[in-house]
């Protein structure tokens, strides 16, 4: 590449455009109001967990990556842990998923996941390890965090961001509208989820 920096940009631009166009949809697109994609994954205690075992309960899926600044925003302040505790206290099943591939940021072995859980005080029902990204791809998980809520009938009722503040700045937690809290609140009150979709934000899932 001997082209100068300036003349190279349009080339790069065209090329990346081309590359983007051939990046065919490797991510599935789950649909609100339809059955949530079934999955089975090993949790950090070595147990095989599947979505179907939680039929009859509300299930929250949280994609995480410890190294991601957006995830850190929610964990360093204790916000995510608080949400996990209050949800599981209400009988909600909270599954935290790690879809980072081995060698990539956020990847955890079972032992590392348990250590992280203890250190951070995370309180999910289980941490599911998805190093091949199969569950992540089935759900079209793009970012960390990326949140999904499945109702007791197994229907997907929410997917998207954790809240409405696309920022890694902890100051934005205050005053943010937390969509998961809202969705769980709607369900508890027997209402339809008022805002079933939002744009997720954060780091890319490190497939």
């Amino acid at each position: 590449m001997t082209t100068s920096k300036l003349s190279r940009r349009p080339v790069l631009l065209g090329l990346t455009a081309a590359a983007a166009m051939i990046a065919a949809p490797a991510l599935a697109a789950p649909a609100i109001g339809k059955p949530a994609p079934a999955f089975t994954a090993i949790d950090s205690t070595g147990k095989s967990r599947s979505l179907s075992e939680f039929k009859g309960k509300t299930v929250v899926l949280e994609w995480t990556n410890e190294g991601c600044p957006y995830v850190q925003k929610h964990y360093n302040a204790g916000a995510m842990q608080g949400l996990q505790k209050s949800a599981t206290g209400d009988g909600v099943v909270w599954l935290t998923l790690i879809s980072s591939a081995p060698g990539k940021q956020g990847h955890k072995t079972a032992a590392e996941a348990n250590d992280w859980k203890a250190e951070s005080g995370a309180a999910p029902t289980a941490i599911l390890l998805d190093p091949k990204g199969q569950v992540g791809r089935a759900y079209g998980a793009r970012t960390t965090p990326h949140m999904y809520v499945v109702n007791p009938a197994g229907t997907l009722v929410y997917m998207g961001g954790i809240d409405d503040k696309n920022s890694a700045d902890a100051a934005t937690l205050k005053g943010a509208k937390n969509y998961v809290v809202a969705a769980l609140g709607d369900m508890k009150a027997g209402r339809a989820v008022a805002q079933p979709v939002s744009a997720p934000y954060g780091c890319s899932v490190k497939y």
Binding site: L27, S204, Y207
Partner: peptide, 8 residues
């Protein structure tokens, strides 16, 4: 520029 990152 569109920037592919895995499936994203």
């Amino acid at each position: 520029e569109p920037q592919p990152a895995g499936p994203l």
